[in-house]
């Protein structure tokens, strides 16, 4: 039953994704530093941070669900990763499609929320509330972007999507899907929790939001989850709009392109408050999304 090639692929991709994910987080901090004319930490700084957290000699827990939260989040992120067609490796993407992956990319939020809620700290409760409201706000434009995409290409299977884009050119080139790209990019900002929408872990306001009670190995878990999530989401973005990739280097470049767009936006804009974010999401991105959807029907 087990085809060993697939399992080896999966493990290889997982390790690759982990390292590249951390590198992306490093690039993020390095690029922001460079924009502020600072030298900024080495690119592999997130790896060091995670190791330090993992190496903590003491660990504290608020009960079973507090431990289960980060584990569940990392587990689902890994699952989501394995269902996206990375470069020429099909992995498991043959038996799950766009909607399943889109859902799997949002479920880690539940894992983090579960852990944060059971920590019983008011700051984490506020973080949970803001996290959920951001997700509710950005879900409509996110859905509209996906619908526009699917209606244009007519299929939900990611592998087929990539094949079609190889043939007929990337999604960006289609005018309607360009609008969908803009909407998806704004939503991508909120998915990653970067600057304009980093209301979830607003460091100054509610001290790291949901992660306030996380320390030691729980924080290490969350960092690895964020790395895998970052890799998965950039890969998802690349697959949807930049026509996937024939080899890993091609994919890496596309992911960098996406990441840099996000970094540049993040390093400029101040933070939205949560109801401003909701009102913003339900105004401009939704309107553009509706136009995109109506153009492709």
């Amino acid at each position: 039953m087990f085809d060993w090639r697939l399992i080896l692929d999966a493990i290889g991709i997982l390790i690759y994704a982990l390292i590249v994910g951390f590198i992306f987080m490093g690039i993020e901090r390095k690029a922001m530093a460079r924009i502020q004319r600072r030298i900024g930490p080495p690119i592999y700084q997130p790896i060091i941070d995670t190791l330090k957290l993992l190496g903590k000699k003491e660990s504290v827990s608020h009960g079973f669900v507090y431990n289960f939260g980060p584990v569940f989040a990392l587990g689902v992120s890994i699952t989501a990763l394995l269902f996206i067609p990375i470069a020429n490796f099909q992995l498991f993407s043959s038996n799950a499609d766009l909607i399943v992956v889109a859902y799997l990319l949002e479920v880690p939020m539940l894992g983090i929320m579960l852990g944060a809620m059971s920590s019983g700290n008011p700051y984490s409760a506020l973080g949970v509330q803001r996290g959920l409201l951001t997700m509710v706000a950005m879900q409509l434009p996110y859905g509209l972007a996906i619908i526009a995409l699917v209606q244009h290409w007519g299929t939900f299977k990611l592998s087929q999507l990539v094949a079609l884009q190889q043939l007929q050119g990337w999604s960006i080139t289609v005018p309607a899907l360009a609008l969908a790209f803009i909407v998806f990019d704004i939503v991508f900002q909120a998915l990653l929790g970067l600057e304009p929408f980093d209301i979830i872990t607003a460091p100054a306001e509610i001290s790291m939001g949901p992660m306030v009670e996380y320390g030691g190995k729980h924080a290490a878990l969350l960092f690895t989850q964020h790395a895998v999530q970052l890799f998965a989401e950039t890969a998802f973005f690349a697959v949807l709009f930049f026509g996937g990739a024939s080899n890993l280097l091609d994919l890496f470049l596309k992911q960098l392109l996406v990441l840099f767009i996000a970094i540049f936006v993040a390093s400029i804009y101040p933070r939205f408050t949560i109801d401003q974010a909701a009102k913003f999401f339900w105004k401009w991105p939704t309107i553009i999304g509706i136009i995109a959807v109506l153009l492709t029907v």
């Binding site: 600072r38 030298i39 900024g40 100054a204 001290s207 992660m211 306030v212 320390g215 924080a219």
Partner: peptide
Amino acid sequence: YDFERFGIMPNPAPRM
């Protein structure tokens, strides 16, 4: 001075 190049980062929560 940029202490971030040594990997130092201000972090609000004592747990981390």
